[in-house]
Design a protein around this nucleic acid. Structure first.
Length: 753
DNA sequence: GACCTGCTGCGGATTG
């Protein structure tokens, strides 16, 4: 074997155990990757927490496990219990890592075990009887372990030396992330020690926030390793399209019966043009097409499959989204791994994360990307080592007409896309929301602690979860109020000695397996064809018998619906339309809207726009000038006024509520707030009043929202706490004040113009 | 809120 000499002169390599060195040698690696080099010493020392941020496929997992395995080999555990726990957001990722890790650990006599929902109960009880080595687990399975085997936790994790978090960025700012932080803290409590944590993450804008997520309260002591070795070349293009079809009603219009079977003769319009370009450009190589919704995935897979049929070539386009069954998704994944036969997957964010599918030739994005960080992740999938990453974005805007809404004349989709790309080039990414209280997850964790210990005092619960745990933004009074709400809902009750126990409802909740997940999921119907499950659709979907449907990239007719078993039986058909998955859009960050304003006011045309996109941008800028938005944010529209504040969605909601307190009915539509029956002059006066008076508090504004239940256990939380929670996460009064001041200045000066 | 993610233990049938 002609092995290139491994990492000689590499100080990290010298630190590793000889057996690990031998394994690296056998891998034939030319050198250790930057992240692996930098992480070795601090992980080996085992004294600090370590955060490794690097691009996908940069050897992050090895950066953690080469030194961890070295430490475990050099100093083998003397007692039972897991030596390291690796927590991953995906079962598929655990299975991937298990294959890779097991191979390394075989040489080292370190047992590796996986534990998630697809692992049998027998294997689990064996592990509990003989806990050893490295455990790969999901947050939900770890939660189940605390609930069902609380009394054994010290035996299981008493000897724990490391906790590893994979894809840490995917947890940050979410309920599941708050659960993960709580679980990590409860591991420390069960081990009765501070167990070193290793976080593996994509590169983020604010590494300090990430470090603080990994070790709440002590983020400054985390060793942060950022591998910025992504000098990768980016080739990108935004392609503009004009939608000449009259825009169809998308939200309402449940009159599905008139769904006309598409004959294929009306192949015109923007979607067809986009499909044509995708077909001719991507066929013959491996690619990913990110459509922004499951409905769009279905529609484009269908359009592209028909192109293949018409051309008499085998279908090269496969769908991939969260409602498709496991075997359909795994089929797409294995086709992607098979380099011999070209395939392009049309997908939602399902293929953003680190499941091993190999790298693809190019990325297509249909519609505005949902954010800068998401676009960065998607790009990471493209480009073999050393090769450029290729991105094509397809943006469609409606044809200009007399009836077009001003917001559409501004070509907001296109401008938002340009803003997102400009920020990506500046390496800015959306930070996670740090101010959420995560009360829903605090409910879950309180109930879980009671299960683990067979009861707990309010003081101990507060100390474990809030004072020293991750729910630091919750003060004692708020926690007490939460406990009272839980008592009212009979989730908990209190013994005379003060001990908290489960109440009747709590007992039921905790003893059902759905308790372990911190996030809510809608009930869904299973879609079945001849005994084979194709996937599922949310229950809100009303599908009358005989309705036509496009699903899993094919056309179907609904034969029968079993409402009790929640099953929809379908047969192949020739017509159909994609299912509607209802909803609004992702939250747009303030920085993106600020960037959009800059783009409107500039005249430079980015070089990555094609001719149509350039033309659309000019139209958008012309509309911006015509409305005079540079100096006046209001536009009269019939009896209404449109207000364009150019700020993030959180601030827009806050301004809308503040206007609401003045008796104005306000609606939010993308870039604009619509003030019904109010003139631009009155709007200017209202803004002036708001800027002079004190704005209501965020909590007062939140009280105006009739239904604030969003997260899984919000149902049992009382109005007051829901208002507090909504205010913390979804409103920004100081931000709104700044924007209102700016808007007032503009409208005041505009009057003299 | 576009999108995404996850969970138990047992009964019963099948196979070696």
């Amino acid at each position: 074997m002609t092995a290139t000499l491994p990492p000689s002169g590499s100080s990290a390599f010298e630190l590793l155990h000889p057996k690990v060195q031998r394994w690296i040698w056998q891998q034939d690696w030319p050198e250790l990757r930057a992240a692996q080099e930098a992480a070795a010493a601090p992980v080996l020392a085992g004294e600090t927490d370590v955060l490794v941020a690097a691009a996908t496929a940069s050897g992050k997992t090895e950066a953690a496990f080469l030194p961890i395995c070295s430490a475990l080999t050099a100093d083998p555990p003397q007692t039972g219990g897991f030596a390291a726990i690796y927590i991953s957001p995906l079962k598929a990722l655990i299975n991937d890592q298990y294959g890779r890790l097991d191979e390394l650990c075989e040489h080292l006599d370190i047992p590796v075990a996986r534990w998630h929902g697809d692992v049998g109960a027998g294997a689990k009880s064996k592990l509990v009887d003989r806990p050893r080595g490295i455990l790969l687990i999901t947050p939900e399975s770890l939660e189940a372990m605390f609930v069902l085997r609380g009394w054994k936790m010290h035996d299981l994790v008493g000897a724990l030396r490391y906790v590893v978090i994979d894809e840490m960025h995917s947890f940050m700012g979410t309920e599941r992330g708050a659960q993960l932080q709580s679980l990590m803290h409860r591991l420390d409590l069960a081990a009765r020690r501070r167990v070193p944590r290793v976080g593996l993450s994509a590169t983020l804008g604010d590494m300090r926030a990430a470090a603080d997520f990994l070790r709440p309260g002590s983020g400054d002591k985390v060793a942060v390793i950022v591998s910025n070795a992504d000098g990768q070349e980016l080739q990108l293009q935004i392609r503009g399209y004009v939608d000449i079809q009259p825009s169809l009603p998308t939200l309402d219009g449940s009159g599905d019966k008139e769904a006309e079977p598409q004959t294929g003769e009306e192949d015109s319009g923007d979607r067809f043009a986009i499909a044509d370009h995708l077909f001719t450009t991507l066929r013959g190589s491996h690619n990913l097409i990110f459509a922004n919704s499951r409905a769009a995935v279905e529609e484009y897979t269908d359009l592209l499959s028909r192109r293949c049929d018409q051309a008499g070539v085998p279908s090269e386009f496969v769908p991939h989204h969260g409602n498709l069954s496991k075997d359909i998704r795994e089929h797409a994944e294995s086709r992607l791994k098979d380099r011999a036969r070209p395939v392009t997957a049309v997908c939602t964010s399902t293929l953003e994360m680190g499941i091993d599918i190999g790298s693809v030739s190019s990325i297509a994005q249909v519609g505005a990307p949902p954010g800068v960080a998401a676009l960065r992740q998607r790009l990471g999938r493209s480009g073999r080592r050393g090769g450029p990453a290729i991105l094509r974005v397809y943006i469609s805007e409606p044809e200009l007409s007399a009836t077009l809404h001003p917001a559409e004349e501004l070509r907001a989709q296109l401008v938002q896309t340009i803003a997102t790309i400009e920020l990506l080039l500046q390496r800015w990414y959306e930070p996670p929301h740090g101010k959420a209280l995560h009360l829903s997850t605090l409910v879950q964790q309180t109930l879980s602690l009671i299960a683990q210990h067979g009861g707990i005092t309010p003081n101990d619960a507060y100390r474990a979860l809030c004072a020293q745990g991750p729910f630091r933004l919750v003060d004692a009074a708020t926690f007490a109020a939460l406990l009272r709400d839980l008592g009212k809902a009979t989730l908990i009750r209190q013994e005379t000695d003060g001990l908290l126990l489960h109440g009747d409802a709590g007992e039921k909740l905790v003893n059902h397996y759905t308790f372990y997940a911190a996030f809510a999921a809608p009930t869904e119907y299973r879609i079945v064809n001849g005994g084979r499950t194709l996937g599922s659709l949310p229950i809100e979907q009303s599908l009358p018998e005989g309705a036509l449907l496009i699903f899993a990239g094919r056309r179907w007719r609904v034969l029968a619906i079993d409402t009790r078993a929640k099953v929809v039986e379908v047969a192949r058909a020739s017509g159909g339309r994609p299912p509607r998955f209802i909803g609004a859009g992702p939250e747009v960050h303030d920085r993106i809207r600020t960037e959009m304003r800059r783009i409107y006011q500039e005249s430079a045309i980015p070089i990555y726009l094609d001719a149509t996109a350039q033309h659309l941008l000019e139209q958008g800028r012309a509309a911006y000038r015509r409305f005079g938005l540079r100096s006046n944010p209001t536009v009269g529209y019939g009896n209404d006024t449109l207000l364009f504040p150019f700020c993030g969605d959180v601030i827009m909601t806050t301004i809308a509520l503040a206007l609401h307190t003045r008796g104005v009915s306000v609606a939010r539509q993308g870039l604009a707030l619509t003030l019904s029956g109010i003139s631009p002059q009155t709007t200017a006066d209202l803004l002036g009043e708001l800027s002079e008076a004190d704005l209501p508090t965020a909590t007062d504004l939140a009280r105006l929202i009739p239904d604030k239940r969003i997260d899984k256990y919000d149902e049992v939380i009382g109005e007051e706490l829901l208002a507090l929670s909504f205010a913390a996460r979804r409103l920004d009064v100081p931000g709104a004040r700044n924007v209102i001041t700016r808007l007032t200045e503009q409208t005041t000066l505009a009057r003299f113009a």
